[in-house]
Design a binder for these strands. Structure first.
Lengths: 346, 346
DNA sequence: GTGAAAGCGCTAACAG
DNA sequence: CTGTTAGCGCTTTCAC
């Protein structure tokens, strides 16, 4: 009935008494408007697809939360898909999502071929798409990412400022933009300080726990081990911590540790870890808002919007707790935040 | 066109050449079948709603992952909703989900009124619903939960076996089944051992970080502080760890610590924490499968199915690293798993 | 203001 | 085996 629709959507004016009658009937008949029918008619589902690596990673979980909160505010809901960074699963997700006629997709792209057909298709047909955290190489897309390069460089500079010269890195998956940018930030910091890059201090991991453990162990047990170590993400950090415990080395006395990706737990580790905190929630939030703006074509045909958010360096005792052999002891590090009250207890 | 439908669904037989022709046209026209239309016709969306407290909590993230993997296998997708344990948001989620005509709902119920209308409605109208982790009090519903009582009792018994008599507990939200069951498990273990319950050692938290911190601090700084502490979930544990660091007390020398909810990080803490591990992934998986069975009415009208999964006690150094004053030193704890190789390094 | 009617893309039933 | 058609529940246009 047209009148009912008008009452619900407020599209046209309905007389008060009629309106009231409709409303009461709806209430006590337990009626729920059928969005499926509405979607079919309107060609608009108010569903946002979200395709990401793994919701089990706290970083992505935060992102999802940010996106969901933003979506809910504007009466959208979120349909999520985990790919574990497999392109095949990403393709499948896209296929399902497009069939479900989601209004747009938030994508944390998996590493894969240069020209991923499912993404190109989406773009070509004008399907709203916003990339989060990473951007597929060579594509012009709306995106919300973090300044990995700058944040890592700042973090490694902090280590250098403390007097470290032999600084190791457990790098992430270099097929991923984030992995590359963080490695480059590390290299830039060394270069700026005139420190020669030691290839044996650069270990290439895959952003997962096990590689952190293996590579961490290798580095820690090597003959000329580093005095400081940068780990490229949260999961690998857990692995490195395990390696550290097994090695019997102490942090920060034997090894300073700085990591990318702050987590609730890193503050309660002994010692608390110096970390680059990412605005994960904000990435999701801004990404979803950007996507919904596109969907509602508030952005008209504006060229791709790229938002870069800054990481924040949280300096804690894992780096400041001691100095390497001949370090300048009068060189006080800038303290940018966090961890002030917790005493060094190891 | 009917033929196209038949090709896609395989409902009727189509001649090979016609079939081929349809298939190629579909391929190179970038056609995606419209699930919205199909859903309207079939009154079936192949979407599962999932309403939970907070995906940012690793425990729930694992659950979601389990549910999604199970759903995908049977060609369903997951629409998630975070409630932060607010009934109002849960109600809203239900309303949206029912309007979206999801085929069923997986619910981690929020604490609330005895007779939650949205849930009763759902049940009354025969909407498939499976409760995960917790069951709304007094309702007969399909559910997948964990044996909180037994697991906690076993865990506290372990503390008692080590010689502890003054055992504190940071309890969770007692409006939640999980919070109550864990507290009861604690009480049962004490009672079985003939230990008098000391009210000042029982602190009631809310499952969040801050309450863990506050209550932990209170317990640790109290005059006659416990020699062992049981913390009722992962988030509060982080708070307790912070309190522990601030208090200057050492674990396990000054205080043995055992917690509910194992996390990747708890194994790399120094010392590694004794913890009850929950089969979070399995809860999601079994729950989703149960729900889909209901939807496809494979269960016909079988009475509510209640699945209880067991928690697993992982004994680590936070409890075994030392004994309380007059403990039996010949009383070796059963080691049920984990942590064997990591040396005590504090 | 209000009620009737067309049509969104699909499936299922049916006639050819 | 194939093509046509009704109808899922909604929104929107149009005549009243």
């Amino acid at each position: 009935m047209g009148t009912v629709s008008n009452v619900l959507t407020g599209a046209a004016v309905v007389s008060p008494e009629r309106r009231e009658r409709v409303l009461t009937v709806i209430r006590d008949s337990g009626y729920h408007p059928n969005f499926v029918a509405r979607s079919l008619k309107l060609r608009q589902t108010r569903i946002l697809g979200m395709v990401l690596a793994d919701i089990t990673n706290p970083f992505f979980a935060q992102m999802v939360r940010g996106a969901e909160d933003a979506a809910l505010k504007r009466n959208y809901v979120l349909l999520t898909f985990n790919t574990d960074d497999h392109v095949e699963r990403e393709k499948h997700a896209f296929s399902v999502l497009r069939s479900q006629r989601v209004d747009g997709i938030l994508l944390v792209v998996a590493p894969g071929p240069k020209k991923p057909s499912h993404i190109l298709d989406m773009l070509k047909t004008g399907g709203p798409l916003v990339c989060l955290d990473r951007v597929p190489p060579g594509l012009k897309v709306d995106s919300v990412t973090v300044g990995n390069f700058a944040a890592t460089r700042e973090c490694v500079r902090h280590l250098i400022a403390l007097g470290h010269r032999r600084i190791g890195i457990v790098a992430g998956n270099l097929n991923l933009q984030t992995g590359r940018e963080r490695l480059n930030g590390y290299l830039a910091a060394l270069r700026d300080a005139g420190i020669k890059v030691a290839p044996e201090l650069i270990r290439k991991g895959d952003f997962h726990m096990e590689s952190g453990y293996q590579l961490g162990l290798e580095l820690l047990l090597s003959k000329r081990r580093p005095t400081a170590l940068f780990v490229s993400n949260n999961l690998m950090t857990i692995g490195v911590m395990r390696a550290l415990a097994e090695s019997g080395l102490r942090c920060p006395q034997d090894l300073a540790l700085a990591i990318f990706d702050d987590m609730p737990a890193t503050q309660v580790l002994q010692p608390p870890l110096t970390a680059v905190a990412q605005p994960a929630y904000t990435i999701g939030q801004r990404g979803a808002d950007l996507l919904m703006d596109r969907i509602e074509s508030k952005l008209a045909d504006r060229a791709p919007v790229t938002i870069r958010l800054a990481g924040e360096l949280k300096i804690r005792e894992s780096t400041t707790g001691s100095r390497p052999g001949k370090g300048d002891s009068n060189l006080e590090p800038r303290v940018l935040g966090g961890g002030g009250k917790i005493p060094l207890s190891i």
